[in-house]
Write a protein that binds this DNA or RNA. Structure first.
Length: 100
DNA sequence: CCTATGACCATAG
DNA sequence: CCTATGGCCATAG
């Protein structure tokens, strides 16, 4: 399926709606955007965000609750500011996962 | 068309 | 907890 701006926006909108202090997984974001199975795509889309974006991309982690991206330092700092505990790049999904 | 590459995921051992 | 495996899917070459 080709990538339309609409599809991108649906992903961005879900990411933007993740509450402060909560996290979501790549797969979760994809599903909530009506695009199940496109977790990898979510990751790639976030990787293309401009550095000055206001989108809370730091609230997205993988299915294991692990931080797996090139900006781990920034991500950890931001999450810490929101009161999220991090152990060895790992976050407890049980405690912090966003569950609408 | 084919292969390679990811900010991924589920399952099995 | 860890590794291995197969699947996933848009992009790039």
């Amino acid at each position: 399926m080709a990538l339309s701006l609409d599809l991108k926006q649906s992903i961005w909108q879900v990411v933007a709606s993740i509450p402060e202090g909560r996290i979501a997984t790549y797969g979760q974001v994809a599903s909530m955007a009506g695009q199940p199975g496109r977790a990898r795509w979510v990751g790639r889309l976030l990787s293309e965000l401009p550095e000055a974006t206001t989108l809370p991309w730091h609230r997205v982690v993988n299915a294991s609750g692990q931080i797996t991206n090139p900006h781990a330092m920034t991500q950890m700092r931001r999450l810490a500011l929101e009161g999220i505990k991090i152990n060895n790049l790992r976050i407890s999904l049980k405690q912090h996962q966003w569950q609408p």
